[in-house]
């Protein structure tokens, strides 16, 4: 008997709340590497992959992407939390609030009227990362998350290892890869204050880092903002920090520092 047969597989749920569902496609894009995970994971709940008659009552791990933007999302999040030993938030929406969190910085009542004629029945809640609503055991950031990092983390978590994502800025990988520094070019790059691990893919693509993996824990944000304001307007900086939902995290960090 092989080991995989005697050892019980971990029951896993992959759940998408309101989002682009990009994290699921990143998983899928890992191709055979992703399918190989099923040697030790049992995909017990993965709606993109299967139709289940009745959902199991227990999961060892739930991966949740997206944000609870509707009442149904919120109920689902709480239900999944209740059923799962570990809940892992994946992607910027779940970890930071992501693109939809831009709502929090504008008049969302006006915005909903801009998009829809009938609005009374629609929940138009403030957007929050999952950890502000339920207990989250681990977070894999990124918009989208990095597929290789996901595979690495899943394999470690299976063994009960929760390595903290290194507190290294995006600049670390940018320099290792010998990419051109866009900050020196006067571009509003958030690389120095953003948690790396993405292989600086945006810099590879010729684009500045916009902070989708969230700010580093101990970093001087104020200085970096002052630096950026030499080249861009306050409005531009404000929009940049709103894009993936890091503005509130940065304000929170600054409050803690003081």
């Amino acid at each position: 008997m092989s080991n995989t047969k005697t050892k019980k597989k971990l029951k896993v749920a992959i759940v998408a709340l309101t989002s682009c569902e990009g994290e699921q496609f990143v998983m899928f894009d890992q191709g055979e590497e992703f399918l190989k995970l099923t040697e030790f994971l049992e995909l017990s709940e993965f709606k993109l992959f299967e139709e289940v008659e009745a959902e199991p009552r227990y999961f060892d791990i739930a991966f949740v992407e997206g944000g609870p933007l509707s009442k149904e999302d919120l109920e689902r999040l709480k239900e999944i939390r209740g059923k799962s030993k570990l809940l892992i938030a994946i992607g910027s929406c779940a970890v930071l609030g992501g693109i939809p969190e831009m709502k929090n910085y504008v008049n969302k009542d006006e915005k909903i009227k801009y998009v829809y004629q009938y609005t009374k029945h629609i929940n138009n809640v403030e957007v929050k990362p999952l950890r502000e609503i339920v207990k989250v055991d681990y977070e894999i950031p990124g918009c989208p998350m990095d597929g290789k990092e996901f595979l690495r983390i899943v394999k470690a978590v299976r063994k009960g290892v929760f390595n903290k994502i290194p507190e290294r800025p995006v600049c670390f990988e940018c320099q290792t890869n010998n990419y051109k520094c866009l900050l020196l070019d006067g571009k509003p790059c958030l690389g120095p204050i953003t948690k790396g691990g993405c292989d600086a893919v945006c810099l590879y693509g010729g684009y500045q880092c916009e902070g989708c993996r969230g700010p580093l824990d101990n970093v001087n944000l104020e200085n970096h903002q002052k630096l950026l304001l030499k080249n861009i307007s306050k409005r531009h900086l404000s929009h940049l920090l709103e894009l993936y939902g890091i503005k509130d995290d940065i304000l929170e960090n600054q409050r803690k520092e003081k």
């Binding site: 709340l17 682009c20 990009g22 496609f25 006006e110 909903i112």
Partner: peptide, 29 residues
């Protein structure tokens, strides 16, 4: 059965270079 992201509304008021970054996030496929 998806919540209200209001992407069109969120784009209003943003810089013209941003929809190229924001709109892909409508859909991961």
């Amino acid at each position: 059965k998806v919540g209200a992201r209001l992407i069109e509304g969120l784009i209003v008021g943003r810089h013209y270079t941003e929809p190229a970054t924001i709109t892909p996030r409508i859909c991961g496929i």
